[in-house]
Amino acid sequence: MSTGFSNELWASRFILLDGIGTCIFVSFLAIVFGTIVGIVVGLPLTYGNFIFRFLARAYTDFIRGIPVLVLILTFYFVLSVLGLNLTAMQAGIASLSIFSSAHVAEMLRGGLQNVQKGQIEAAKAVGLSFFQTFLYVSLPQALRQILPTWINTAVETTKGSTLVSIIGVVEITLVMQQIIGRNFLSMEFYALAGLIYFIICFSIERFGKFIEKKVAIK
């Protein structure tokens, strides 16, 4: 029944590559959308008046207080009852984006607020507008500071993408379950899954370190 691991691996190469592709696709989009939404939420969180700050704060705290799995199930099942029938793929990307956006918003606030007050005052003194101060003084410093945590969120989001297998997105985890269902080689293929995730996440981390070095102030 079960032939050798290498034979099974060769036979499964196409669905495995598909699964890896899906994992990267879902994670990449989730990180991109999450970052965009995170910036949109993070700015009012830092500079907004009372109402905007309250809304942004409510959003980040609410999302960060919900497990990713529950977010995924909610986007897939609850939204369809409300008439928005997302496919498993759309629901997976949307929920992971929302998950990472809350983290991005929070770290952007931290980065912006960490810029020394004296610098902002100095910017005002030389006649920079609020927007110019933000663009030339606060943002470049904040971005450098949040880069390591942002990379961390990207890795967390990628690892979180395993959970979309639960709603039927055929990514690495679900592909492994399919392969193991056929040949019972559970140890081997779960170990392989671990290795693949490690390679993906390690690459993201290395990439982050590379960028960090590139933009560091020497």
Partner: peptide
């Protein structure tokens, strides 16, 4: 589902 032979599973051709 897709992981339980012989009911519903991915064969070697995918």
């Amino acid at each position: 589902g897709s992981g339980n032979p012989p009911w519903h599973f991915i064969d070697k051709s995918g």
